[in-house]
Design a protein around this nucleic acid. Structure first.
Lengths: 331, 331
DNA sequence: CTGAAAGCGCTTACAG
DNA sequence: CTGAAAGCGCTTACAG
């Protein structure tokens, strides 16, 4: 590959000046028209392409942001319609195109056990966008991000109180919203059903439920907060529970299946609401009532704010988006 | 950010050795266990992260491949279900995850008019995957790729006879297959309907049609080959044409609308087939009969073969995939 | 088993 | 208006 040296030589000029031409450098003094043209012509003739790695090393910038999914398999994108990734990618690329940034999808291993589980590879990039990562899984990883001298933006999930930038749905308010909906439908004893993992997110959603449930949530927590893995179909009737708020759609699907298999009818015996996301079509096999996060808009704003940080602009620490109430067939 | 220098200093060792430890270097001589541990500990304590740009500059490798869509707006991914991008991304990421490569989505401007329309930016990457780019649009661009000393793989479309690597559907055979299908349904005079742009692809598809049509294609070309922009609804009856093969689904949609508006019934008066792609659901508003390219598998294989080239393995120049016959409601 | 030194290809502060 | 020189942070061939 021809280098800038080669271009300079052919143009009969120094590399410094050649660099200024190629970078449309706008210094104190202009570059003479003749020099400019000679350099551009040499570049054309040689098919010169700047070495991006050298530029990145020298400038400390790449005009690329990287995206880390919840796990490497996050990017095993499904061809299912109305899929989570689709909405996330759409929001992401909208922002990237608008700002002229490339996007690096990190698909390999990005932590190194020998370094104590700390981050090992975020690729060649100016900033890191972390989408929906289960933060309970790798505390060492989250710690290591604080040391990164590149901006980090969390989207959807984020570690509370650690001072990271975050763009997320308002989970507490979402939990309250869903619980109020069930209250309005006449339910008094409403369970909060979660699963292992994503404790960080699920705690916030549960906090919203607690807010609306008031004293009952405290008093009857042992009865009302359930892990979907342990719950038996008759647990609801036994505890006088007539409705369930599920911490995400997977939890909802599992509960729904258990209830069906146990002969419990939804919504006849038990009403259900789930946390889910906006998409063209219902992303679950069941048409749940629920609260839906505006996924595309969240990811898009997250990327835009990350780029703001990369370019030295200020942006608020946390941006929260409201959930939308979604009507289905389970309340 | 701490550098390798800092790690070496803290470990009381030279940068060379520190580098060998971090890279799990497996040279002629092993590294002493004590040295190894001291380096790793220093790295952990400092939160050392290698500078990817420096590594890339030095190694000449990034473990990243870049993807160029048909235009920057290629990556304005739609949230429509069963969408083209979804299938392409799915195939792409399958290969990338399998091989441990990051993927760089090029979203900005990638040609520079001052350099005569030649390529200006493919980002930090080891190889370039070009998906479905309309090659008629920018010949200078295609030329400039030949000078790149990084491997280039075309997917879906490719410039014929220029010696580029390509992974694509067998357009000639696809055209023949669709034409045979119409023949079997009893049609004798079958039009080939195309539009401006993508001349490269459409020529191949037309060649397949010509093969099956035989002498009629030559003789009646003026009557039978149409541009959808010019075609009038009554043109078919006037020319005794009872079927149309459309060069892609957009062309099909436009023709279908024109016929409908002109009171021509499909398939009653005119049968239609289109070139389209496999997806979960019919990607067009009309349920066309057609030949569908296996999009995910093509892109996945293209990415895999590109990575083979990056890593110095040989792979064949052109890989062609068969179209699948797709039943609809228009023949 | 480990270190000193060169060099990957740029950009920019400094000097003229 | 232009050039010489330093340095970004690594890796590796060479020497010991």
């Amino acid at each position: 590959m021809p280098t800038l040296q080669d271009v300079a030589r052919r143009a009969g000029i120094s590399p410094s000046t050649a660099s200024r031409v190629m970078n449309k450098y706008d210094g104190a003094f202009p570059i003479s028209q003749k020099t400019r043209e000679r350099v551009l012509e040499a570049a054309r003739e040689l098919g010169y392409v700047p070495n991006a790695a050298a530029q990145a090393l020298r400038r400390g910038k790449t005009r690329t942001i990287s995206v880390l999914g919840s796990s490497p398999s996050f990017f095993r994108i499904s061809t299912d319609p109305a899929n989570f990734h689709m909405a996330a990618m759409a929001g992401l690329m909208e922002a990237a195109i608008e700002r002229g940034y490339h996007v690096n999808l990190l698909s390999g291993t990005e932590t190194d056990p020998e370094l104590g589980g700390a981050y090992a590879d975020i690729g060649l990039t100016d900033g890191l966008l972390i989408i929906n990562r289960d933060l309970d899984m790798d505390a060492a990883y989250v710690e290591s991000l604080k040391r990164l001298d590149k901006p980090v933006m969390y989207a959807l999930d984020y570690p509370d109180g650690r001072g990271f930038y975050a763009t997320a749905p308002d989970d507490v308010e979402g939990g309250a919203m869903a619980t109020r909906r069930l209250r309005r439908a006449g339910h008094k004893r409403i369970a909060f059903v979660r699963s292992s993992g994503y404790a960080n997110i699920f705690d916030r959603r549960q906090a919203g439920w607690e807010k609306v449930m008031g004293a009952a949530a405290q008093r009857d927590a042992a009865d009302l907060v359930m892990n979907v893995a342990d719950v038996a179909p008759d647990a609801f009737a036994a505890r006088g529970v007539t409705a369930a708020l599920c911490a995400n759609d997977t939890t909802g699907i599992r509960l729904h299946r258990k209830l069906e298999e146990g002969g419990v009818s939804v919504p006849g015996d038990v009403a259900m609401m789930v946390f889910t996301h906006e998409a063209e079509k219902n992303p679950t096999p069941v048409d749940f009532d629920g609260v839906a996060e505006p996924l595309s808009r969240i990811v898009s704003s997250a990327a835009r704010r990350l780029i703001d940080l990369v370019e030295g602009r200020r942006t608020k620490k946390t941006e929260l988006f409201a959930y939308n109430l979604k009507e289905g067939a389970t309340v």
